[in-house]
Each structure stands twice: as structure tokens, then as C-alpha cells.
Design a protein around this nucleic acid. Structure first.
Length: 419
DNA sequence: TCTGGGGTCCTAGGACCC
DNA sequence: TCTGGGGTCCTAGGACCC
């Protein structure tokens, strides 16, 4: 059976762990730069704050209702996530971490009572060790586990575990699931289905294979079979990322090449670091810049450049150098830039990276330098050593007005208890 | 004034190879 | 009138997920 557990209101719950006074009170968590609402507690949802709400448009509602606001603290969320995942892995090592707050598990139990027991134990262990509550669904396939998970989440009073384990029950449930709620059916596909009179997940599973494939591609066909209880969407344990992206919206408009270059160099360094963490290199980069798409009064510009590296690399030096070259090719004077990003494509394992025929890179030296930099930055803080092209004076600051402490990762932020 | 960030997979078309 | 068959790589775009 496939299990799926999912943390409830994850970011908001993380903020609550060390703020028990926030229990039962509305909380929202904002995106970088305090731009949009990206997480809400149940109380905030009930007050009608939608997902993705721009902060400046909802300021009044937030104040009137005394909603507690937090800036995104991804260091904290990432650390809590690691703890949750490691507890789950101890109970079932066959686990696919699907996102920061959810994971599939391939459990070798097919008895409802035993499954429920397993789910209950998982719920309690995670709750006890981290303070986070999860909802758990079990079913023969991934998409059905998603459905089961959703039902479990609605079960407010009991232990949130739900099992789909027989055909009759599965059909009855799918007859009550609207197409919008199917995992893998988004806005466009839902519209398409509604247009041909398909409203429920069950109706979708009754469509012909050829038709589904034509209209929704092989992805849709896989989904159909998966919903029929034939596990078709593969279970994959830990895999490396095929793409790594670092993009940011700036706190203000940038006009000069130097300002944007600094950001791009930092993004490239950050990508290099992420590559090293998963033992990968990238063979090429994409760099993009764009103006503020919400400002109709300003000239708009978007451009991206693809650049190949002489050979795959995960060195800050190389990536920053080539990212800058790419940036040079697309940067135009006279615009107000609001956002830029660097993408690593063609990622490969470091061990099998194909070096150039006339290999001239200082690969060995770079590797040693990167090891040393990583070690120092781990010991003394993330920005102890940066490239000269990066923001040495730390002028660039994200708007983070409501940032909570890094309770679990920074020794100075650990809470003090008076006895 | 202020509007996030990071991923996956698939398809189609163009340019190329033998 | 009729014009093979089997590939690769790259780019762009569209759909989806959290």
C-alpha cells in the first residue's frame, strides 16, 4: 500500500511550535520580501485570507482581525521538515519525500487494522517529537493515497488516518470527488473536463484511453489508471534534482549592470552550492532578467540567455563567471529591473561529468577551494566567504519585517527557559 | 509604493545525423 | 501523381505540483 502523510498548515504550524501563545489564533506566513501570503492557519483561512494574497491589499483585514504575521523563515521550516522526514524514515525507510511537508511511503501492510495502527503511531511520533500534526492516507496507488489523505484531513476530531482499500468503496468515494480536487488536474484540465460534462473523478476514470491520451497526454492516461487502483504513477525514492533554480524579486528597482550582476553572481554561487550538496555538476546555465510586470507605466523587458560551460562544473568561480557572461548578452540600459534568476540545466553526477578534450579548468584547485569555503561557511555562518563579485558589504536586504528566530539552527536563537 | 519561489513532465517543431 | 526510415539535440511552450 502507498501511504501519504502531509503536515497541516506546515509553515504556520512551524511558527507555532515555539509560540504556544499563538495556539488557536490566526497566523499568516509571507513570501520573500513580505510580498504575498503563502501559508495560513485554519483561523486565518476562516477569515477569508486567500492563498497568494498580496500583503499590501490585505493589510487592513489583517490589522482589523489581529492576524499574526510572519516573514518566511525557510531555515526553520527546512529544519523542522528534516526532523519530520527522519522520524517517518525510521518507521518506514521506503519513503519518497515529495515536498517540504509531505512524503509517500511504500508500506508492506495490507490489513486495515494494522494500517490504521501504523498511521496512528506515525501521527503520534511526529507530534511528540516536533509538535507538528500530520494527516495520513493509505491506498493502492499514489493518486488514491492523495484522495485518502484529503479525507483524513477533514476528520477533525479523530486521529486523521483514512484508508481506501476496496473497489466498491473506491468508486463511491471517487463519485464524490470533483475534478478540480484530483491530484494532477489543474485549472486548464478541469475546465476542459467540465466542458464535456465530466464533473467527478469517477466519470474521468470512465473515459476511453485513446480520448484521455489525446486530450490530456500520457500524463492524463497514467492518472486515469492510477485512479482505477492500478498503481501507474511510479514510486521513486530519493532522487537528485534535474533542475536547480535560484530567482528573486528585488526589494527595489535596479538600473545599473553592477547591481544586477551582483545578484546574478550570488544566485550562481547559490546554485553551485546546491549542486555540490547533491554531488552534481551543471553543463549549462540560463540567466534571465525582467522588469516589474505589475507596473504598466514602465517600459517592460524580459530576456533570457542560455550559456554552455566548457565542461560541467559546480564551482562558484565558474558558474558566476559564465552567469555574468550570459547576463552581459541580455542586459539593456534604460530599464528598471525587478527580478532576475539563474537556472542550472544539464545536471549530471560529478563522478561521471565529461571533461573537455582540452581541459583547462582548474578543476582540482576549484574543488579544494569549494570544500574549504563550504567548511568555513558551515562553521562561521553562510556569508563568511563570498566571491568579490557578490555583495561584500551586505547591502542587499530582503524585506523581512516579521522574521521569527532560527530557533533550531542558530545557537543564539535557542529559547531560554526560566525555572 | 507594495504582487514568491522552486520544481516535474510532456509535446511539437526545427535543425541536424546516418 | 508518386518522394524512406530511424534517430538525436535543442528550444519553446504548456500543463501540472508544492
Amino acid at each position: 500500500m502507498i501511504g501519504l502523510f502531509d503536515c497541516n498548515n506546515f509553515y504556520a504550524s512551524c511558527e507555532r511550535i515555539f509560540r504556544p501563545d499563538m495556539e488557536g489564533k490566526p497566523i499568516v506566513v509571507l513570501s520573500n520580501n513580505d510580498g504575498c501570503v503563502i501559508a495560513r492557519s485554519n483561523e486565518a483561512k476562516a477569515l477569508g485570507i486567500p492563498m497568494g494574497a498580496p500583503m499590501f491589499k490585505y493589510k487592513d483585514i489583517i490589522q482589523e482581525n489581529n492576524i499574526n504575521v510572519f516573514s518566511a523563515n525557510f531555515t526553520l521550516y527546512g529544519d523542522i521538515s528534516n526532523r519530520v522526514m527522519s522520524i517517518a524514515s525510521e518507521m518506514e525507510p521506503n519513503i519518497e519525500i515529495y515536498s517540504i511537508d509531505e512524503a509517500f511511503m511504500n508500506v508492506k501492510i495490507n490489513n486495515d487494522d494494522k494500517l490504521f495502527e501504523f498511521g496512528e503511531k506515525l501521527y503520534k511520533e511526529i507530534k511528540k517529537a516536533t509538535g507538528i500534526t500530520v494527516s495520513i492516507g493509505f491506498a493502492p496507488s499514489k493518486s488514491l493515497a492523495k484522495v485518502a489523505n484529503k479525507i483524513a484531513k477533514k476528520n477533525k476530531e479523530k486521529i486523521p488516518v483514512f484508508i481506501i482499500n476496496d473497489d466498491k468503496q473506491r468508486e463511491d468515494i471517487l463519485k464524490n470527488v470533483v475534478v478540480e480536487d484530483i491530484w494532477g488536474i489543474g485549472r486548464q484540465y478541469a475546465k476542459k473536463l467540465r466542458n464535456i460534462g465530466i464533473d467527478k473523478a469517477y466519470d474521468f476514470t470512465q473515459l476511453g484511453d485513446a480520448y484521455v491520451k489525446k486530450e490530456f497526454s500520457v500524463v492524463g492516461l497514467r492518472l486515469k489508471n492510477d485512479l482505477l487502483g492500478k498503481p501507474t504513477i511510479k514510486f521513486e525514492d530519493i532522487k537528485k534534482k534535474n533542475n536547480i533554480t535560484v530567482t528573486r524579486t528585488f526589494d527595489k528597482n535596479y538600473k545599473t549592470f553592477e547591481e544586477v550582476r551582483e545578484r546574478v553572481a550570488s544566485f550562481a554561487s547559490s546554485i553551485a552550492y546546491k549542486l555540490r550538496k547533491q554531488n552534481s555538476c551543471t553543463g549549462s546555465l540560463i540567466v534571465f532578467v525582467m522588469t516589474n510586470r505589475f507596473r504598466n507605466d514602465l517600459k517592460q523587458y524580459y530576456n533570457s540567455a542560455y550559456i554552455q560551460l566548457p565542461e560541467p562544473s559546480n564551482s562558484n568561480f565558474t558558474l558566476a563567471e559564465y552567469a555574468e557572461r550570459a547576463l552581459k548578452s541580455i542586459f539593456r540600459e534604460g530599464y528598471y529591473y525587478k527580478r532576475a534568476g539563474v537556472l542550472a540545466c544539464n545536471i549530471c553526477d560529478t563522478a561521471v561529468a565529461q571533461t573537455a578534450l582540452f581541459h583547462q579548468n582548474n578543476y582540482v584547485q576549484d574543488t579544494k577551494a569549494m570544500d574549504a569555503i563550504d567548511l568555513i561557511n558551515r562553521k562561521f555562518g553562510r556569508h563568511t566567504i563570498v566571491l568579490a563579485s557578490q555583495d561584500i558589504d551586505r547591502e542587499w536586504k530582503m524585506n523581512q519585517e516579521f522574521l521569527s528566530p532560527k530557533y533550531t539552527t542558530n545557537i543564539d536563537d535557542i529559547i531560554k527557559v526560566k525555572i
